[in-house]
Amino acid sequence: MVLRSSEITIIGGGIVGLSTALGLLQAGLRVTVLNGADGDFRASQGNFGLIWLQGKGADFAPYAAWTREAVARWPEFARALQELSGVDLALQQSGGFEFFTDPDEFTAFAQSLAQQQAHLGPRFSHEMIDGDTLRRLHPEIGPEVVGASFCPLDGHVNPLRLLTALQRAFVTLGGEIRTGAQVVEIAQAQGGGFDLRLKDGTHLGAPRAVLCAGLGSSTLAAQLGFATRVSPQRGELLITEKLGPRLGFLSSTIRQVDEGGLQIGGTKANVGPDDRETLSEINALARHAVTVLPALADVRVVRAWGALRVMTPDGYPVYARSPQHPGAYLVTCHSGVTLASLHASLLADWIEDSAAAPDLEAFDDHRFALSAAA
């Protein structure tokens, strides 16, 4: 069986794949998305939903600038996506905090934000707030919090609604999503394009292919000559019972979702492909939440889960064209929610190599090939 109706095939039906596909579709291309198996590890279904700038790219100016552009485009992106899909994304972008209980960590993060400020100039603003001042502004903050940073550009969204909205908008505009289409092998086809072999034995043809398969990308990336090998990083989350409007702010580790519950997260563990929750990390999350907000001690936790982030070797996104297989592209990152506004817009210009294409050379895959050679 050969598929030739599409001009470009997206391998991966998560937030990164669908936002990229939507941008290409809106640029006038015929696009098919191959969405893998239900049992695949899916970062899009377990993330925290932040649209976050502070701290991003402090040591890598191109990433700071790319993230700043993404954050700026989110309000219009959300409006257009809601209009297309009929799904309310529950976007709020009124600023966010990073809380600290360790003075040294607070000082170190202040230095990182100063570096980010140097990269972005007037396009970035932030405040460093000491603990006493913070408690005058927010009396509910606990006494062990030594300070916080605040960036007025940060925000959050309902990530599951975002995923649903992308699916609906893509199909509404004429895109095709093939579910259960798990690509296990990709090779150059005779006469041009690519032959994609699925797990069920089906073969699909694709004139061009964009690999956006998250943790499923490494094997296929190697087959296309890419150097990037992504790895999993587990993060664990807690969800509390639904509450009234109890949280007067957003932070990178505690947020009140639109349904009313509090989502508590922030763990990082390099444990391989293991998304099980652990009692020790759940306890640590609960302690952190109560330290920041002591009144949460009487709130019930109703759910907990682990999910796997998609991490490149240096933690930054990869946007690469295959040097060996023209027409093959690799797009991978761990900030798929934040960067969705760019993946659905500017990335299409880069893939099409149009005059309006952004300069993404700093994110090319060859940086890992060079590191290995060194």
Score class of each variant (00 low, 15 high):
residue 40 D to S: 02
residue 343 H to D: 11
residue 247 L to N: 03
residue 30 R to K: 15
residue 154 D to Y: 13
residue 163 L to Y: 12
residue 115 Q to Y: 04
residue 331 V to M: 02
residue 220 L to R: 00
residue 76 E to K: 00
residue 258 D to V: 10
residue 155 G to T: 08
residue 326 P to W: 15
residue 130 D to T: 08
residue 337 V to L: 09
residue 55 G to K: 04
residue 12 G to C: 07
residue 319 Y to D: 01
residue 48 F to W: 15
residue 156 H to I: 03
residue 34 L to M: 09
residue 200 D to I: 02
residue 285 L to Y: 13
residue 125 S to I: 03
residue 205 G to N: 12
residue 105 E to T: 07
residue 175 G to H: 03
residue 330 L to W: 11
residue 358 P to Q: 08
residue 184 V to A: 03
residue 289 A to G: 07
residue 315 G to F: 10
residue 160 L to K: 10
residue 72 A to L: 07
residue 56 K to T: 06
residue 116 Q to C: 04
residue 173 L to D: 05
residue 59 D to N: 11
residue 179 T to Y: 15
residue 17 G to S: 05
residue 148 A to I: 07
residue 93 Q to K: 09
residue 318 V to Q: 08
residue 306 G to K: 03
residue 219 T to I: 01
residue 252 S to E: 15
residue 164 T to S: 10
residue 320 A to S: 15
residue 75 P to K: 04
residue 197 R to S: 13
residue 306 G to E: 05
residue 141 I to S: 01
residue 300 R to I: 02
residue 245 P to A: 15
residue 313 P to D: 12
residue 374 A to M: 06
residue 102 D to M: 09
residue 355 A to D: 11
residue 342 L to Q: 09
residue 170 F to W: 09
residue 320 A to R: 05
residue 26 Q to T: 12
residue 135 R to A: 00
residue 315 G to H: 11
residue 295 A to Q: 14
residue 45 Q to V: 08
residue 276 R to A: 14
residue 10 I to G: 04
residue 280 S to T: 13
residue 372 A to S: 13
residue 134 L to F: 09
residue 309 R to N: 04
residue 264 I to H: 06
residue 69 E to H: 07
residue 177 I to C: 03
residue 154 D to E: 14
residue 273 P to V: 03
residue 287 R to K: 13
residue 145 V to E: 05
residue 297 A to F: 10
residue 8 I to N: 07
residue 22 L to C: 01
residue 351 I to L: 10
residue 38 D to C: 00
residue 204 L to G: 08
residue 3 L to I: 14
residue 295 A to K: 08
residue 111 Q to C: 06
residue 281 E to W: 04
residue 341 S to L: 11
residue 192 G to S: 12
residue 204 L to N: 10
residue 294 P to T: 12
residue 309 R to S: 05
residue 345 S to V: 05
residue 348 A to E: 05
residue 194 F to N: 09
residue 317 P to G: 10
residue 61 A to Q: 12
residue 53 L to W: 11
residue 174 G to I: 03
residue 189 A to K: 09
residue 34 L to R: 08
residue 193 G to V: 13
residue 146 V to A: 02
residue 277 E to K: 04
residue 62 P to A: 07
residue 85 S to F: 12
